[in-house]
């Protein structure tokens, strides 16, 4: 899983040119042909097997979370970013309670008065509101919902800028 890899990787990992290219140049436009890895291999001048084993290795090392579609979360069901102002002494307890909800798929502690930030996703709006209300009721702390109004990002991946 990506989260355990995040925790375990202590320093920037060295990557060879093939690894760098697979990471940086294939964040979009993955071929939809019957043999996509062979197509990538042909472009890179390596074998299909090299591409597959290198991607497997990058995944195992945690450098690549996955190779595949990136879904726009807002396109399915209802979702929102939510923030809470949790007293330091209650942070562990409240985070644990929030995490127990299946609807919560991301939860971060951030340095701010509003220190707990999570994303909740549910099949529909009613379910979502129910989850937020339940978190509020069980913690006694206001849940500030900040749903997306407009998405301004054109996702072309992220330039890793090897230096």
């Amino acid at each position: 899983m990506a989260d355990s890899a995040i925790m375990q990787t202590a320093s920037t990992m060295p990557l060879d040119p093939l690894e760098q290219s697979l990471l940086n140049d294939f964040q979009q436009g993955f071929p939809l042909s019957p043999t996509p890895f062979a197509e990538m291999a042909a472009r890179l001048g390596v074998s299909e097997e090299q591409v597959i084993t290198t991607l497997e290795r990058l995944q195992q090392r945690g450098a690549v979370s996955r190779v595949g579609p990136v879904f726009r979360t807002h396109s399915i069901g209802a979702s929102t970013l939510a923030a809470m102002c949790v007293p330091e002494t209650r942070l562990e307890e409240v985070a644990e309670l929030v995490n127990r909800f299946d609807a919560v798929n991301h939860n971060y502690e951030r340095e701010h008065r509003l220190n707990l930030w999570f994303v909740a996703t549910a099949p529909d709006e009613a379910h979502l509101q129910q989850v937020l209300a339940e978190i509020e009721e069980r913690t006694g702390i206001e849940v500030i919902a900040l749903p997306m109004v407009e998405d301004y990002h054109i996702d072309l991946g992220f330039d890793l800028q090897w230096t």
Partner: peptide, 10 residues
């Protein structure tokens, strides 16, 4: 629904 397809770096 799908933004892009490719390698997702960590």
């Amino acid at each position: 629904i799908i933004r892009r397809i490719g390698a997702v770096p960590n």
